[in-house]
């Protein structure tokens, strides 16, 4: 067991007690902090379903040792804040454009595209494809996800 430690997730400090040292941030988020929105799809950083933003940088929570993330500012899909209404522009676009099927990859893609649009407000199709090339989706073939990315970029610039 590790000594108790504290993680800052979505602006809130969470105590982690009685954890095994080898636990990933993904495991701690899901099983200890009650934040199962980040998904465990491969635990090798190959699917992107656990994408979170750590100190402003998009990373896979499965590849972060939880105990080493003390002092980091962690944002998960649960922490994305809608400007108004129930959904962020990216989330809204996913629903409207039919980008959701089984939905397992969806939280990771929503986080990845939120990160992209914060850095590149008007990405080209190729920029979107490269930005989400680490987020595997098996249902959609990405077509509606790419459409959602452009719709979200447009909605954000219209606001």
């Amino acid at each position: 067991m590790t000594d108790p430690y504290s993680l800052t997730v979505n602006g809130t400090d969470h105590q982690v007690v009685d954890a095994w040292l080898g636990e990933s941030l993904l495991y701690v988020l899901r099983e200890r902090l009650g934040l199962p929105g980040s998904k465990a799809g491969c635990e090798q950083g190959e699917c992107g379903s656990c994408s979170v933003i750590v100190d402003g940088s998009l990373e896979c929570a499965c590849l972060i040792l939880a105990a080493a993330a003390v002092g980091c500012d962690i944002t998960t899909v649960e922490g994305l804040q809608p400007g108004r209404g129930d959904f962020t522009t990216v989330q809204e676009a996913f629903i409207a454009e039919g980008a959701v099927q089984c939905g397992f990859c969806t939280p990771g893609l929503v986080v990845a595209l939120t990160d992209l649009l914060a850095r590149v407000p008007h990405p080209s199709d190729l920029e979107v494809r490269e930005a989400i090339s680490g987020n595997l989706c098996r249902c959609t073939g990405y077509g509606r996800i790419l459409a959602a990315a452009q719709a979200a970029a447009k909605a954000a610039s219209d606001e």
């Binding site: 199962p36 989330q91 996913f94 959701v100």
Partner: peptide, 23 residues
């Protein structure tokens, strides 16, 4: 019509409970 999925909202917010999310 292109009706929206009833589970779309929970899925985009990470609130949809997949079988691996159960406790």
């Amino acid at each position: 019509e292109n009706a929206s999925r009833p589970d779309g909202g929970p899925k985009v917010r990470g609130e949809f409970a997949f079988s691996g999310d159960l406790w």
